[in-house]
Nucleic acid binder design. Structure first.
Lengths: 243, 243
DNA sequence: ACAACATGTAACAGTGTGTAACAGCCGAGC
DNA sequence: GCTCGGCTGTTACACACTGTTACATGTTGT
């Protein structure tokens, strides 16, 4: 695993590569430099634990060190929506800036470690380090672009294509962290994938089964092996159907 | 219409009221104050004209003065996605911050006027006015929250409910500008609404027809009259069906 | 062993889609 | 003036995909 000092404060730069073309490339910010300005507290979470819940006061950002988390938006009537998954290097909580309280739950999907960055301290640090302010702003804008790219994908792709796009997204994020893009483990359940992709868990299962049947991937429980990256990409962009 | 000086630099504060509960309330920033720091250029657009197109270099933000615009994300393969609609007081282009070029098209749906705010000048102004930087950051975060709230809505509501939510959203935005929330004109076509709501234009038509049949609204071409606001809201939250 | 949970499979139903035809509006052109 | 063609919106109908329901299997924790 890459050393702590190399972690970018930006949400995975390469993440959107599979969805959008151009993407700003930013130099990583050293967390050790940041810790000279901000009192960085480490927090550890076990699977199922909440980093924070909707309604709790917003007073810190979090930078994921290790592990895997999901962010969930919950409506008053109980409807639930997974809005994203966060892994090493991702910033958590930036969407709550300017709000008094958090709007979503953040749950660890496996044992995870995050750095807690008190927001008032971050604000002070931003005043001293214009680059930090800039990176934070960039991270917010990139988050908007990412969300919109996914919206385009979800609204125009079939269930199978969405799942393929999801796997490719995960693959590129793993690769950006120095892991193999062709072999990884899904830390979330089918239902969570479905919520994020606007599908039911049975449909996710069906899509995975079909993709495996086409020889694109190999699925063993939550363990994914991408056998044919190009074919998987082709599922999204080509109309194999009678087009 | 309210004087120029009262325009908020934040995207309509009340916009998300129909979707999310808590929302930061910000004091408006005076565009006249801003014009002392930034060389504000006025731009006029007629219906169908582009404010900017995907691929063009990003070098300015825009604040809508009058009119109505849509933002469209276009994939390489031609798939198109309306990501939002912008009206008086809304900021346009903030999602491109940190990127070299814009990712989406912005099209005027009627004769519109915007203030062009050159980004380098905005950056300099932010250095002098911390509140401006703060408001910009808040606007970005609020945009993320808005997008996610819509994602929750689109993924959990039926076609009819989505259209109802869309109308209520427009109503509250009109109200925030001092217009009647119960009587307004849709500046966009059914296809644009459909794209935004992840529906086809025929489905939008059907939903409007059914809502009108229930007595919630009156539809005359693009002219909408909300007859029963509570009933319209009930369509979203209640299960009229056999639940 | 048992309950609780996640996943896989299958049959069926339903919502929204795709196609098509038609009506109304508008601008271009004669 | 007039018609024509294009665009938008409406409605109808058959179909496909996904959602729903149900059940079987496998895993985990008590």
């Amino acid at each position: 695993m890459s050393p702590v000092a190399e972690i970018s404060i930006l949400p995975t730069k390469a993440r959107r590569a599979t969805l959008t073309a151009a993407q700003a490339v930013a130099a990583p910010i050293d967390i050790e430099v940041l810790s000279k300005y901000v009192n960085v507290v480490q927090r550890k979470l076990t699977a199922g634990q909440y980093l924070y819940r909707a309604g709790q006061p917003f007073n810190a950002l979090y930078l994921v060190n290790v592990g895997f988390l999901k962010t969930c938006l919950v409506a008053e009537d109980g409807r639930e929506q997974v809005t994203g998954f966060r892994m090493r290097g991702d910033l958590v909580g930036i969407e709550s800036i300017g709000a008094a309280t958090h709007e979503c739950d953040v749950v660890a999907l496996e044992t995870s470690g995050v750095w807690e960055l008190p927001y008032p301290a971050i604000l002070r640090a931003c005043a001293q380090m214009p680059e930090l302010q800039e990176r934070l702003t960039w991270a917010l804008a990139a988050e908007i672009r990412s969300d919109r790219s996914w919206k385009l994908a979800l609204n125009s792709l079939s269930a199978e294509q969405r799942v393929a796009a999801f796997l490719l997204d995960l693959a590129s994020r793993h690769e950006a962290l120095g892991f193999s893009p062709r072999h990884f483990v899904l830390r979330m359940g089918r239902a969570d994938i479905g919520s994020f992709l606007a599908l039911k868990h049975e449909t996710v299962t069906r899509a995975l089964t079909r993709l495996a049947g086409q020889g694109c991937i190999d699925v063993q429980w939550r363990e994914i092996r991408i056998l044919d990256m190009a074919a998987l990409d082709g599922v999204i962009h080509c109309e194999d159907k009678a087009a």
